[in-house]
Design a protein around this nucleic acid. Structure first.
Lengths: 152, 152
DNA sequence: AAGAATTGATTAGGTTACCTAACTATATAT
DNA sequence: ATATATAGTTAGGTAACCTAATCAATTCTT
């Protein structure tokens, strides 16, 4: 193994660790937990005006957490009036989760914060570097998926 | 705000989120928690053969967690015989933490896994892309630090 | 020198973000 | 009709932190 490669790997570990310690994905909304916010984001992303909502299992896949974890999240969001549950018309085992208007408003506020943060990052890095970064990170994600450490 | 910038930012949010859901920084050693492993790493990095060990407050800064959290970690590591505590000779308030031989052996095993993983990544990406990625991620880290979301 | 303020670490109690085992209802296969 | 699989839920548990309170030691002020 080449020494420059070893050094490159080491540097990448270090910066990746530091980044993993940042709070970039924390919820900026008081009273809305980070996990709830990302669940809302996922639900909203898959809810159209004529859509029945997203299944618990689909949320589970998107967020990469188990169904019981999703259930708890949805329980909490439903209690806050941010989502609605309904039974699927074709398969009564399936629960569909849709976002409420209140949920949309909260999410919009949170999303705004992220977009401002990342748009500032795009400005800071420059557009070309940003695209390159996104491309490289996608490759990293692919590599991690290949080595099966994405989610054990 | 330019539409291509908005798209770039969006893409970056998405891939960043997915990466944050991966388990790359999880401990590969059965019985050693991820938090313990990174604390060991930090302690080892700052312990030379003639060094008194690293302070609790220093570990706290490195790991970006509070002192009470470090105390608990060190309690656990000490119970496992992986670190040793001692009182600083110049300031009796200060606790110095050093790694044991057993701790070094465990860490070496864990570090080996990471290095293989990341060295594989370097191969996968190519050396030039890796350096570029590390560089860009350092810039991202700088940006996050500037916007004060690293650690609230 | 004495007292007040600050600093460093620790303990205890709490929240968040998950996980798994067990269970129920529903759908599918035999 | 019965057995098996699937989707979601509940309950109990762990890991990874946080904060408030506390104590001992050091530093600062008078």
């Amino acid at each position: 193994m080449d020494d420059t490669k070893r050094k490159a790997a080491k540097k990448l570990v270090d910066v990746s660790w530091k980044l993993s310690r940042t709070n970039w994905h924390q919820s900026p909304i008081m009273g809305l937990r980070s996990s709830e916010m990302w669940a809302l984001y996922c639900i909203n992303k898959n809810t159209g005006s004529d859509s029945p909502g997203i299944k618990v299992s689909e949320i589970s896949s998107f967020l990469r957490v188990t169904s019981p974890s999703v259930t708890q999240l949805v329980n909490s969001l439903e209690a806050q009036g941010l989502v609605l549950r309904s039974v699927d018309t074709e398969d009564r085992r399936v629960v569909r989760v849709g976002i409420t208007e209140k949920g949309e408003r909260i999410l919009e506020k949170a999303a705004g914060t992220f977009h401002r943060l990342f748009e500032g990052l795009v400005e800071y890095l420059g557009e070309e570097n940003t695209s390159q970064l996104a491309e490289l990170l996608s490759k990293v994600l692919t590599y991690f998926d290949m080595t099966e450490i994405s989610r054990l």
